Amino acid sequence: MDLRIFTEPQQGATYDTLLTVAKATEDLGFDAFFRSDHYLRMGSVDGLPGPTDAWITLAGLARETRRIRLGTLMTAGTFRLPGVLAIQVAQVDQMSGGRVELGLGAGWFEEEHKAYGIPFPKEKFARLEEQLEIVTGLWATETGKTFDFHGRFYDLTESPALPKPAQAKVPVLIGGHGATRTPRLAARYADEFNIPFASIEDTERQFGRVRAAAQEAGRPADALTYSNALIACVGKDDAEVARRAAVIGREVDELKANGLAGSPAEVVDKIGRYAAVGAQRIYLQILDLDDLDHLELISSQVQSQLT
């Protein structure tokens, strides 16, 4: 079971904070550092000092880390034109020596679009499908040849399809709870399918849909990696769990029901139950980015039992 660290910087984090967490992620043996792609805080937190851009952040981290994978859960398709996004991701992949992964979603948080003057189109899913075809098509175009795409929302003519990523294939992540269109899209474009904040039962159901869609599309179901994103709140005892829950404004019982919370033994047991329904990787949502002891505990007492 791979464990990856997943952050939500729109809730309040500077680049320096993210760099500190990314370096801890690397030093403590986690597989990857991922971040959300949002420009507005959610809930009652003040969000200070304000948002950081996902791909600018990852570009910086690409030069200041050595081993860990770097990516987004999920880049909002509404924020960037697909041709521009292909250039950005390819460049960051080069800067990292081939360690980048692209999670791409339709975008959903209307308030952040209003706050920063970003168009919020109605037909986001149809746009996402074209975006995936364009981004992957640009990267796959042979050097020296051009790429054309004439769709409903985007039109590319004689694109040189440059630059190329360092990796022969940048892993593409698609995720969500949708019962029909999401599995179909994952089956066509994804290297990894991720379901965020889902119960074990819902996870098993959605993984089954994606596996079936892959087979219908002529791909082996096992060609995809299957993953979860779950909030983490681990403590060496009940008091430490309660303290960490209070810091992020959550209740222990709710965290245990909906995430990975409790003692290391409790968390290892629950991860095992996700693994039993097909999860191969878990993104641990870490909301208190100043609590590096939390990461150390997960590394030494949870991750060590999963290898």
Rank of each mutant, 00 (worst) to 15 (best):
A217E: 05
A217G: 05
G218I: 03
R219K: 13
R219S: 00
P220N: 08
A221D: 01
D222Q: 15
D222E: 15
A223Y: 03
A223S: 15
T225C: 11
T225A: 13
S227L: 04
S227A: 11
N228M: 14
L230V: 05
L230S: 07
L230F: 06
L230P: 09
I231P: 04
I231D: 09
A232Q: 12
C233G: 12
V234N: 02
G235Y: 00
D237M: 01
D237Y: 07
D237C: 02
D238S: 15
D238Y: 11
E240H: 00
V241I: 06
V241E: 02
A242G: 07
A242E: 15
R243W: 00
A245R: 12
A246S: 14
G249A: 04
E251S: 14
E251H: 10
V252D: 04
V252T: 07
V252P: 01
E254P: 00
L255F: 06
K256F: 01
K256C: 02
K256H: 03
A257C: 00
N258P: 00
N258F: 11
G259Y: 03
G259L: 05
G259A: 05
G259S: 09
G259H: 05
L260T: 06
L260F: 06
L260D: 05
S263I: 08
P264S: 13
P264A: 11
E266T: 03
E266K: 08
D269Q: 14
K270G: 04
I271Q: 05
G272W: 09
A275K: 14
A276W: 10
V277L: 13
G278I: 01
A279R: 08
